[in-house]
Design a binder for these strands. Structure first.
Length: 445
RNA sequence: UCGACGAUAGCUCAAUGGUGGAGCAUUCGGCUGUUAACCGAAGGGUUGCAGGUUCAAAUCCUGCUCGUCGAGCCA
């Protein structure tokens, strides 16, 4: 009898098939049992009638516990009451293993309990759906950049230097060479790739030692960073919106049933089509002042509210929220005060106080999913910035070579995969967007 | 790091300073169309840890540990 995956079951109606999987749940009603089987591809309800099976099979079914591994044979039939739902009229059962008492019941559990058992929690329908969406996002990212002529350019995880702030680096001993740091970003290396290959992207794990306990932060996350030679900040934004539209539209088509499982309102994602609103920092300040949203600054004896919102300050969660709430698409906030931004961003030629950076804020309060910029391509200015930020020059010598040997205007951005997954799946917390989330208070399982 | 809140059965939660309960899970029994099935019965507790107040503490106080949510920082 042919072994069939549950998601292909509709192609086998009225046929005898074999399913290899696990018992998800079982209900009984006297001489009838309704076991639900899952095999990783889906879930199907079986029907076991005491009249139709041998006494041994009937008794074996009575022994089964949740998550016991089983191989079952039977005939695929249409559900008597439900459209497009199929059942398996079970004729045979082979028990692979009787599971011990399974801790995750089909009832409610607390977050800590589930995270302690993340390796088992991943079997539940909702988590399976999230992992499928994550997979689809990754696949569509790779296909987008492949079709657009980008080359995948893998960058190292062990690095000698910081890219973002030095206080957020994880360090480790590296033989006789002292400390190595876990990469916070592949960007600097990707820039060398762009000079070699024109258009590249890097996609891998990155690490930030930020003690951030919010629904948007994990210490180990996957980042996708394209880098393009001869792109300015506006080309960068054009790419961002084309890319985001492609990924989101593809996911809502290819992950229809997963998004249904997650009860995701698809209409909000269908809006994610070019063009996206582009708001300069100056315009964003106007919005904040009009809505009377103050800057909240910590002081010795508490907090003070500063209004109107002063020019030059970075935005916090309430400010992002106020800017995004008027739109139903991702919002690109660009041309930021240079002081608030990283050393490698190019200054606006018309206004040295402005950095040519862009933050993409996802709708529905999911916050920043992309940060990008045009990079400083002038050697002298870049050296000046490295001094200003008190970064160790010797470690950036190779990076400065990119400005010595055929420097060109270039741009790129970084997208946090788990934030993208959180947004598309409408997750309450980023810890569900990756199989095993790493947070300041958790490294297990 | 700061702030708010919390920790009671395997899980999710109740319990006015006065004999710690329920639902689910587990075990046993019943039920031929169940859908987080249902009905009946049973077992299951050093109330996070340490100290204090009191005739009496799950409950009030202090400290600690752990967690949740929010802020900052960021993708």
């Amino acid at each position: 009898m042919e072994r069939v995956y549950i998601n292909k079951i509709s192609e086998h109606v009225d046929k005898e098939i074999t399913i290899k999987g696990w018992l998800y749940n079982i209900r009984s009603s006297g001489k009838l049992m309704f076991p639900e089987f899952r095999d990783g591809s889906g879930i199907i309800q079986g029907v076991v009638s005491k009249k139709e099976v041998s006494e041994k099979i009937w008794e074996d079914f009575a022994k089964l516990t949740q998550e016991s591994s089983v191989i079952v044979k039977g005939k695929v039939t249409k559900h008597p009451k439900k459209e497009n739902v199929y059942e398996l009229q079970v004729t045979d059962l082979e028990i692979v293993q009787i599971a011990e008492e399974y801790p995750i019941t089909p009832k409610e559990h607390g977050v800590e309990f589930l995270m302690d058992r993340r390796h088992l929690w991943l079997r539940s329908q909702r988590q399976v759906a999230i992992m499928r969406v994550r997979n689809e996002i990754v696949q569509s990212i790779r296909e987008y950049f492949y079709k657009e002529g980008f080359t995948l350019f893998d960058t190292p995880i062990f690095t000698p230097n910081a890219v973002e702030g030095t206080s957020t680096l994880f360090s480790t001993d590296y033989f006789d060479l002292g400390k190595a740091y876990l990469s916070q970003s592949g960007q600097l290396y990707a820039e060398s790739g762009a000079m070699a290959l024109g258009k590249v992207y890097t996609f891998g794990p990155t690490f930030r030692a930020e003690n951030s306990m919010t629904r948007r932060h994990i210490t180990e996350f996957w980042m996708m960073e394209p880098e393009m030679a001869y792109y300015d900040i506006d080309d960068d934004m054009n790419l961002i919106e084309d890319f985001l539209e492609y990924v989101v539209q593809r996911v809502i088509v290819n992950c229809k049933s997963e998004l249904e499982t997650l009860e995701r309102d698809i209409t909000k994602l269908q809006n994610v089509k070019k063009p996206f609103p582009r708001v300069t920092y100056d315009e964003a300040i106007e919005i904040l002042r009009k809505k009377d949203i103050p800057l909240i600054r910590k002081t010795a004896n508490g907090e003070e509210e500063i209004r109107p919102f002063p020019w030059g300050e970075d935005f916090g969660a309430p400010h992002e929220e106020a800017i995004v709430e008027d739109y139903d698409k991702p919002v690109m906030v660009h041309r930021w005060p240079a002081e608030a931004k990283a050393f490698y961003m190019k200054r606006d030629p018309n206004d040295p106080k402005i950095a040519l950076g862009v933050d993409v804020l996802a709708p529905e309060g999911f916050g920043e999913i992309i940060g990008g910029s045009q990079r400083e391509d002038n050697l002298d200015l870049l050296v000046e910035r490295i001094h200003e930020h008190k970064l160790p020059m010797e470690v950036f010598e190779w990076y400065l070579d990119l400005r010595r040997f055929g420097s060109v205007p270039h741009s790129g951005f970084g997208m946090g995969l788990e934030r993208m997954v959180s947004w598309i799946c409408n997750l309450e917390h980023i810890r569900e967007a990756i199989p095993f989330a790493r947070r300041p208070n958790r490294i297990r399982p």
